[in-house]
Amino acid sequence: MGAVDMDICARVKEDRPLLSVQGVKKLYGNRIGCTDVTFDLFPGEVLGIVGESGSGKSTLLGCLAGHLKPDAGRILYDGRDMGALGEPERRRLSRTEWAFVHQNARDGLRMGVSAGGNVGERLMAVGARNYGTIRDTAADWLGRVEIAADRIDDRPSAFSGGMQQRLQIARNLVTGPRLVFMDEPTGGLDVSVQARLLDLLRGLVRDLGLSVVIVTHDLAVVRLLADRLMVMKSGRVVEQGLTDQVLDDPQHGYTQLLVSSVLQV
């Protein structure tokens, strides 16, 4: 095989979506959670999902992350059908290759465990058995999310909302996941705290080459972070495309409303 062929192989691999979502639908009884959702997420790409409250953003994210079982459609992760994936494998992926950042840090942290223990948990879950190494790695990650080293033995209950959120991020990223799901990671935080968190997230996403699906109803968040944008309404995707295109030239009436209401603020 020549160098040219190798090159093509590498490119073909790159061009395969990390996540391929095909006609996903989730019902709650006969109420629609989300329906007919189709998109591809490529390695290193950040997809923003926006939409009003109740439009199905969290439901969709739950399906993608394997927390909810879709009623129809397929989700392929790295070419593998998640529906056919056994639970052990799905749980293994969710503590190695995937990460999930909850809106409420309390849902994503162990409040009774120190910051260091919170960050170290995923390491120990994948077999780390050297206390010194675990602690050093935890300290390093606390530094990366701008939490002072001397807070390593404090419990998250002693942290501010912004610190808790940064701790949750460190805890998730410590095992080097490829795909990160975030549900309103900046929700409920003060504006200045939000800005700092966004900045940090942007740096981490770029440095680590993460693929991200981020749900928010803050268009400023997607403008800063997302390469592509998906707009949802009543459980359906009404518009998707490059973030700048969608925001600067919205096609769908609902998107136009969304964008204009932000501009008015």
Binding site: S114, E121, A125, R135
Partner: peptide, 13 residues
């Protein structure tokens, strides 16, 4: 992994 988190907390404290 959680069992070792408990032991980690012990050593940290």
């Amino acid at each position: 992994g959680l069992m070792h988190v408990k032991l980690y907390e012990d050593i940290a404290r």
